[in-house]
């Protein structure tokens, strides 16, 4: 898994590439990077999953832990460009009830600005 960070309108966008799975996790986890951003007062986070091919239960745990940490400080973590396949699994497991998921980056960014 590779993560590139960029900032737009005070929102930190995580461009994630590859598979979010236990076996692919390097020294630093997704949750750890999210926490670093929260510590730097960046509490609006968008995970761009366009190039994510697979997520295992560990990956789901990482995204949920990131969501919980963000929510705890009154921030927002949203998802965008999730593949159809993953979206179905997210729907079935009711993850769509927890996460705000947007089709494209612009509508996600817009939703942040409306809050």
């Amino acid at each position: 898994m590779e993560i590139d960070l960029r900032k737009k309108d005070n929102i930190v966008i995580f461009d994630i590439k590859g598979e979010i799975r236990r076996s692919d996790m390097g020294n630093v986890s997704l949750h750890h990077i999210v926490k670093e951003q929260l510590d730097s007062d960046n509490s609006r986070i968008l995970l761009n999953l366009k190039k994510v091919e697979f997520i295992d239960s560990f990956g789901v745990g990482e995204i949920l832990a990131s969501f919980i940490s963000t929510q705890d400080i009154g921030g927002k973590l949203k998802l965008t460009q999730i593949s159809k396949k993953l979206h179905v699994v997210f729907e079935i497991t009711m993850l769509t009830k927890v996460f705000e998921i947007f089709k494209d980056e612009n509508s996600a960014l817009e939703s942040f600005s409306k809050e």
Binding site: G61, L64, V89, I92
Partner: peptide, 14 residues
């Protein structure tokens, strides 16, 4: 999260 989701079940599906 816990109000809307059973995390163990979700992980089990994955």
């Amino acid at each position: 999260v816990s109000d809307k989701l059973d995390i163990d079940y979700t992980k089990l599906v994955f």
